[in-house]
Design a protein around this nucleic acid. Structure first.
Lengths: 189, 189
DNA sequence: TGTACATCAGTGAACGCGCGTTCACTGATGTAC
DNA sequence: TGTACATCAGTGAACGCGCGTTCACTGATGTAC
């Protein structure tokens, strides 16, 4: 709820939202703080009060992204109990939160060692690997868990990345349905 | 073989090579023509004679990349006859030609409709899908070919992308061996 | 309830920088005769 | 073999732009007493 007048109300939130829009339009590398200030209707020096610099803002966006991903995976696991649907949820997250997703996996744009980023990333990783352990015949073998988890992660990540880059031909179905089909090609799932 | 003096000899090639180095250092988005001119030791206005603008240079780099990928996949197929090794070759290409790979899958940076790009991309796509048809029990079913090809492409692409972004934990082996292992999780391979 | 003061959020002018682009030019090379 | 001319490749000065950053400032808010 932005206020009128001198104080914005929640400029931090407004800048993050503006960043999402700007990244959806032109990608994370083209981002400029002056542009975000313009979009939020404040002076160009204002963003520095909330995020020291561009990397600071993208660090906050990455942390938020890993949090959203962890939440999406947790929900998918609770609601379906299916490992395959965990992969589908990963793809859905990437497509629905394209800006967050693109920043998250371009660590050269932000500070990947930031404590909040590290914690959020670990949360999302934990959900993924807990999901692998649900698979029959895998839970007993830690090596198999790592292999199957890495394979599923690669596949979901690759499908999402290819889709976002426009590299995939027309698949004649929704990206979610196509992802579900592709993930079915995994041996264990 | 660059010449001395006023004429460079092969400035076009030198600029492409400089672009690869610059992209390896700072990513494709940070590229500037002035920087490439500096690296090649020519005046800052020289690049415009060979590539009209930045998108022109990246278009050439993308076309070259798809050509290199098609060649790498063709070689892998001829030498191993294995579908799995086609995926390994894809990952190896991405890691060995990081700059090309990153440009190729960011079509917003170049002109993806450029005829040379389109032709080279189709060549590399054709090798991939021909490789799928080698699989037992798949050749007869066009739908299965598309599914298996897309699954393998997603997995190889995802593994390569995650590796390049530094997202993967230490796997205790070479990226090539890890990719081979991961690709073994594909049902049909 | 009122006043004084500290703190915080945002302003706006100023700076220096690297960039892309333009343009008249000059040096080198190739070709015609 | 020599000369004239066309073409091509690269130069360097100039321009305008958007950017990040700095800094003294002002308006708004919260707190102490």
């Amino acid at each position: 709820v932005p206020k009128d007048g001198y104080h914005h109300g929640d400029l931090r939130r407004a800048l993050l939202d503006a960043a999402v829009v700007a990244i959806d339009e032109s990608g994370p590398a083209a981002l400029s703080l002056r542009d975000l200030a313009r979009r939020a209707g404040v002076s160009h020096a204002a963003p520095a009060h909330h995020f020291t610099d561009k990397a600071g803002l993208l660090t906050a966006l990455a942390a938020e992204g890993f949090d959203l991903l962890a939440a999406a995976l947790t929900t998918a696991r609770a609601e379906t109990g299916s490992f395959r649907e965990l992969g589908v949820a990963y793809v859905r997250f990437a497509l629905d939160h394209r800006a967050h997703f693109e920043v998250m996996f371009h660590p050269e744009l932000y500070r990947p060692d930031d404590p909040e980023v590290v914690a959020a990333r670990e949360r999302s990783g934990a959900v993924l690997y807990t999901g692998v352990e649900d698979l029959p015949g895998v839970a007993a073998d830690p090596g198999a868990v790592r292999e199957a988890g890495l394979a599923a992660w690669s596949m979901a990540h690759g499908f999402a990345t290819l889709w976002l880059s426009g590299a995939l031909p027309d698949l004649g179905r929704s990206p979610e349905a196509a992802a579900r089909m592709v993930l079915g090609e995994l041996g264990g799932a």
